[in-house]
């Protein structure tokens, strides 16, 4: 498990890898970490390397890590009730980076403070740039697993022989 990775993979490394890691991250105001630790295990068990950026991740840090690592997916988790507002803000910053436009990005957790976001809020998050929104609910993890499995067949994290 790595929080705040020591060194970012250089460009060439990424180019030679078949696929990048999955980035798991909170948003700037959210301190909860059990969700992050749990998601990391779920994703690792599907054969991915995970970079867990931890709690209270400033927008700049998330953008910087995504640009440096070109992840296979960006998984944002927030449960403190500010996820809607902060998710909207940060996904627009991520999508503004040309190299991140094609990377799958999802958000999930407890995104508002009233227990279940309105479909309007979920649509806002989708149109702002998320590919999927998993707002609270235990079914979320199962469908998230399916999404990640469908993303690419499990492959070992090996360099491509060139």
């Amino acid at each position: 498990m790595s929080l705040l990775p020591g060194k970012a993979a250089g460009r060439t490394d990424i180019a030679r890898c078949r696929r990048g890691p999955v980035i798991v991250s909170s948003v700037a105001s959210d301190a909860h970490t059990w969700n992050l630790v749990y998601l990391q295990l779920v994703i690792e068990e599907l054969g991915y390397e995970v970079v867990n950026l931890g709690p209270c991740v400033p927008d700049d840090l998330l953008v910087q890590e995504c640009r440096a690592r070109l992840p296979a997916m960006v998984v944002i988790s927030s449960v403190n009730g500010h996820g809607y507002q902060e998710g909207l803000r940060v996904v627009q910053r991520l999508r503004a980076c040309p190299e991140l436009r094609g990377i799958p990005m999802v958000i999930g957790g407890k995104l508002g403070i009233t227990g279940g976001e309105s479909s309007g809020h979920i649509d806002d998050l989708l149109s702002a740039g998320f590919d999927a929104v998993f707002d609270d609910g235990t079914a979320g993890i199962a469908s998230f697993r399916r999404l990640l499995t469908a993303l690419s067949p499990p492959e070992p994290m090996l360099e491509v022989a060139s």
Binding site: A28, S29, N80, G81, H82, Q85, E86, G112, I113
Partner: peptide, 17 residues
């Protein structure tokens, strides 16, 4: 310490925790 986000939430009527 993110007072700007407090202001935005209150302005937009998004509930704070």
């Amino acid at each position: 310490g993110d007072l700007a986000s407090v202001e935005r939430a209150l302005r937009d009527g998004v509930g704070l925790n």
